[in-house]
């Protein structure tokens, strides 16, 4: 490239002397903000650490195989969480297929089929709003609709349906995001080969968005199984000796059991509650790690 002819000397607006002067001050601000952010991070971590430490100190001694396999009892030494643990596991097994089918279906409809317009955005805004509705409100809905109107009573299926309803908005929104992140070029490639819309959605869009969808579902489920309020509203049993035997049997869940134990005055029950929290936490951490693993393992770059 040829050099341009002589250029007139331009007036400089950035004064090197002033820059030099202000650099020190800018670096101080730089460091201060860094420390503030670090404190923010540490605050969360330290509080969590203290809580964890307290729970482990109180609960570790109560953890044993018997604790996992026994029913709750008046005598702390015999008490266990078997019915609650099984209740939580059954709830999970019921919720996952429900929110997968309904949630992903709704997300596919909204992203792939619905015409962009006022109606669609109105629905989308309201789904996002539903995600912020307090869980006890969903409990009331479950009590009115599933327990009373549908006549399910305070059963496992009523609890599962209520929790599924509560998780749906989160699942729909996260699935929509995952589906939206699949580039249009993928859809065009498939359609241009003569594939129908459904084939394109099922064979290209869904597989490509599955990691995001699954991550959203796992996070929603792990939030759902930690919920107490909706289950209390639905009428989960406070004291029950057996694991649920079918969809229409009475049930309880880990958070309910923990809540029950913490509300008793004896110190031993406090220890049992702490042990219950540890079990619940192990389940939650496992599920969240699974979500992270899936996201890292299967996420696709385009």
């Amino acid at each position: 490239m040829a050099l341009p002819e002589k250029q007139p000397v331009q007036k400089k607006f950035i004064d090197p002397v002033a820059v030099k002067k202000s650099i020190g001050q800018r670096l101080v601000v730089n460091n201060v903000t860094k420390v503030i952010f670090l404190i923010g991070l540490l605050f969360g971590l330290v509080v969590l650490g203290i809580l964890l430490f307290g729970v482990i100190r109180d609960g570790a001694a109560w953890l044993s195989l018997d604790f996992l396999l026994n029913a709750p009892s008046r005598r702390p030494a015999n008490a266990g969480i078997y019915p609650a643990l099984m209740g939580t596991i059954f709830l999970m097994l019921l919720i996952i297929p429900m929110i997968f089918i309904i949630g992903v279906g709704a997300a596919i409809y909204l992203e792939e089929y619905a015409k962009r317009g006022r109606m669609t955005s109105f629905i989308e805004v309201n789904i996002s709003n539903l995600a912020g509705v307090p869980s006890i409100v969903f409990g009331l809905l479950g009590l009115t609709f599933f327990v009373r109107n549908m006549g399910f009573g305070s059963t496992l299926i009523a609890g599962a349906l209520t929790l599924a309803l509560m998780s749906l908005p989160v699942v729909i929104v996260s699935s929509q995001e995952a589906i939206r992140s699949v580039p249009q070029a993928m859809r065009h490639a498939s359609l241009a080969l003569g594939a129908s819309k459904w084939q394109t959605t099922f064979k290209v869009v869904l597989p490509a968005s599955l990691p995001g969808v699954i991550t959203g579902i796992i996070l929603a489920v792990s939030r759902a199984i930690g919920e107490t309020a909706p289950l209390i509203m639905v009428g989960a049993a406070i004291f029950i000796a057996r694991a649920p035997e079918g969809l229409f049997s009475e049930f309880t869940a880990l958070p309910i059991q923990i809540y029950n134990w913490t509300s008793r005055p004896q110190a031993d029950f406090q220890g049992l509650a702490a042990a219950g929290i540890l079990i619940l936490m192990v389940i939650l951490l496992t599920m969240n790690s699974l979500a992270i693993w899936i996201r890292n393992r299967f996420s696709k770059r385009y």
């Binding site: 490639a189 241009a192 129908s196 064979k203």
Partner: peptide
């Protein structure tokens, strides 16, 4: 058939990319 401006293979194996159309 159509070929686009930006190469847009599916995030699948080479084999599955080609077999996609016939399978559909």
């Amino acid at each position: 058939g159509m070929v686009f401006q930006q190469p847009n293979p599916f995030p699948k194996s080479i084999y599955d990319n080609i077999a996609y159309g016939p399978r559909v």
